[in-house]
């Protein structure tokens, strides 16, 4: 089976000694992959390398077979992402912001902009500037931008930040629908472990810059009462033993 995302021996150490070491991971089309780890474990670093915002010292990431280091435009043509915080141009309206990003993709017309704004519940605010938006609304706009081009791979770093309960439920349904109907692959990091349990089909645990384990969510839930129990167990048993990586 072709891989949607192929992460090979990714290493990036910051001057303070933190970072990620030898991360290798394969994600398949239609997967909703949950990337779990405590604060500072290296989740965002991996996602930033995947989207070209940071360069690794070693290793590579291939998206739909295209390396983000050697063939960036082709790799990113298939990707929608939201990294850390949903940023937009405060002096442009929500619609104008989406128009800015739409120009990079052939075939993304005004109708699609309305469609994604409707999907995230922002259509009534299309003419408003994001500087007047709440955190949740900014996050929704970021998500609209991420799915605007109907990408085959969506990378979301803490996508539920700032969303209310209704927003979280809507987002979960949207992710599951896109994965099932359009075979969109999701790579999601979240500290909301319960939501990962409900949304993701596979999970990976990263701790102290090292990938500890990867498993199918249904297998985890067969052996553990909850994903939280599995997470704690993995971190406790493997976290302090370097090099013990199970896939």
């Amino acid at each position: 089976m072709d891989k949607a995302i192929e992460i090979q021996n990714l290493t990036k150490i910051y001057p303070n000694g933190r970072g990620i070491r030898e991360i290798s991971l394969d994600i398949y089309p239609g997967d909703i992959f949950g990337f779990l780890g405590p604060n500072g474990a290296g989740k965002t670093t991996v996602m930033k390398i995947m989207t070209g915002l940071v360069r690794p010292q070693r290793g590579d990431v291939k998206i739909m077979g295209h390396s983000v280091l050697d063939d960036y435009e082709k790799a990113m043509a298939q990707v929608g992402c939201l990294i850390e915080t949903a940023e937009s141009y405060p002096f442009l309206s929500a619609g104008d912001n989406l128009r800015q990003w739409a120009r990079y993709y052939p075939g993304v017309a005004e109708q699609r902009i309305d469609e994604v704004l409707e999907l995230v519940g922002l259509l009534p605010y299309k003419q408003e500037k994001p500087k007047r938006f709440s955190l949740g609304m900014k996050q929704r706009l970021g998500l609209a931008a991420a799915i605007l081009s109907r990408p085959r791979v969506v990378i979301l770093d803490e996508p539920l930040n700032g969303l209310d309960v209704e927003g979280m439920i809507d987002m979960r349904k949207l992710i599951q629908r896109l994965a099932e109907q359009e075979q969109t692959t999701f790579f999601i990091s979240s500290h909301l472990i319960h939501d990962v349990e409900l949304t993701c089909t596979r999970v990976g645990i990263i701790f102290d810059g090292k990938l500890l384990s990867i498993a199918r969510t249904e297998d985890v839930l067969r052996d553990y009462a909850s994903l939280e129990n599995y997470f704690v167990s993995e971190v406790e048993s493997n976290g302090r033993v370097p090099g013990n990586i199970s896939q």
């Binding site: 989207t51 070209g52 915002l53 960036y72 435009e73 082709k74 790799a75 990113m76 043509a77 990707v79 992402c81 990294i83 915080t85 940023e87 937009s88 141009y89 405060p90 990003w101 990079y104 993709y105 931008a145």
Partner: peptide
């Protein structure tokens, strides 16, 4: 400063 450069950098443009 606005972090908006990141939005453009993650589009398919070298």
């Amino acid at each position: 400063a606005q972090n908006s450069m990141r939005v453009t950098l993650t589009r398919p443009v070298s």
